[in-house]
C-alpha cells in the first residue's frame, strides 16, 4: 500500500475511506450580525457572519428585481503554518466568488429586491476542505438570520489518495494526494451548487467520487440540522 492509507485501509488520521472528520457547529456567535455561525470541521475553525438584507450602497449596485450577494472569504494571518499576508490572495478571491455563486442559487433573492446581503467568512485556523466548511457555516448563518432559502447548503470534498477515492481530504492528504474535488450540495432538492476539481480521475472514478461526495454531504447535513434544531427548538421542548 501507499503512504497515505495503510494495509488495513486506515488513513493517517485514523479514518476509513468513507468517513468525515468530526464537525461541530455553533449558531449565533456574533451578537451584532443578523446571522452567524462557527464551524469546526476537522482542524478548520471558521466564523461566518451575515449582514442584511440591507440597502445597497453604492446604490448603482442594486438590482431592481432581486437582492445581490457580496461575499468575502478571508484567512487570518495566523490561520496557516507560515504567516499568511492579510491581503486577499488569488485563492481567497476565487473562493469568495465560488461561495457567492453557490449561495446565490440557494437564497430566495427575489424576495428582497434592491437590497444587498453581505456575507463574511473568516478562517481562524485552516485545514483541508476549508471552502466546503465555509459553505456549511455560511448556510447556517443565513438560516440564523432568517433570510429565505430554498434549501440548506452543505459542503464536503472527495479526493484520490494512493489511487483510491476517499471522502473529505485533510490538508496533508490534499497536498500529497492525486486529486481533490470539493462539492456543495442542497440535500432536499438533490442539487449540486458547487463543483470544482483538481487532479486526474477516470470516468469511473469521477462517478464514484460524486456518489461519495453526496453521501458525505448528507452526513454534514445531519450535523447542521442538529445544530440548528438545538439553537432554535431546545426551548420548545422544555414545555
Amino acid at each position: 500500500m501507499g503512504k497515505l492509507i495503510d494495509e488495513n485501509g486506515i488513513r493517517l488520521d485514523g479514518r476509513r475511506w468513507d468517513e468525515i472528520r468530526p464537525i461541530t457547529i455553533e449558531i449565533g456567535v456574533i451578537k451584532n450580525a443578523d446571522g452567524s455561525a462557527y464551524i469546526e470541521f476537522g482542524k478548520n475553525k471558521i466564523i461566518a457572519a451575515v449582514y442584511g438584507p440591507r440597502e445597497a450602497h453604492p446604490k448603482h449596485l442594486a438590482l431592481p428585481d432581486k437582492a445581490i450577494v457580496r461575499c468575502r472569504y478571508h484567512m487570518a494571518p495566523f490561520s496557516t503554518e507560515e504567516r499568511k499576508s492579510p491581503q486577499p490572495s488569488r485563492r481567497e478571491i476565487e473562493i469568495s466568488l465560488v461561495l457567492r455563486r453557490a449561495m446565490e442559487s440557494a437564497i430566495f433573492l427575489e424576495e428582497y429586491p434592491r437590497s444587498i446581503i453581505d456575507v463574511f467568512v473568516e478562517v481562524l485556523q485552516s485545514d483541508g476542505g476549508s471552502r466546503c466548511a465555509s459553505i456549511t457555516a455560511v448556510s447556517a448563518a443565513l438560516a440564523d438570520s432568517g433570510i429565505s432559502m430554498r434549501d440548506l447548503v452543505v459542503g464536503c470534498a472527495v479526493g484520490k489518495i494512493d489511487g483510491q477515492i476517499v471522502l473529505d481530504l485533510s490538508d496533508y492528504e490534499d497536498k500529497e494526494g492525486e486529486g481533490d474535488m470539493p462539492v456543495a450540495y442542497m440535500p432536499n432538492l438533490d442539487k449540486i451548487v458547487l463543483l470544482q476539481f483538481d487532479g486526474i480521475f477516470s470516468e469511473e472514478e469521477f462517478k464514484k467520487a460524486i456518489d461519495l461526495a453526496i453521501l458525505g454531504n448528507k452526513k454534514v447535513y445531519e450535523i447542521l440540522k442538529k445544530a440548528l434544531i438545538e439553537k432554535y427548538f431546545s426551548m420548545v421542548d422544555e414545555k
Binding site: 438560516a143 429565505s148 432559502m149 430554498r150 434549501d151 440548506l152 442542497m186 440535500p187 432536499n188 432538492l189 440540522k225 440548528l228 434544531i229 432554535y232 427548538f233 420548545v236
Partner: peptide
C-alpha cells in the same frame, strides 16, 4: 401541529 422545520424541508 407546530412541527419544527428548516429551510428546504418538504
Amino acid at each position: 401541529v407546530r412541527t419544527k422545520v428548516l429551510p428546504g424541508d418538504l
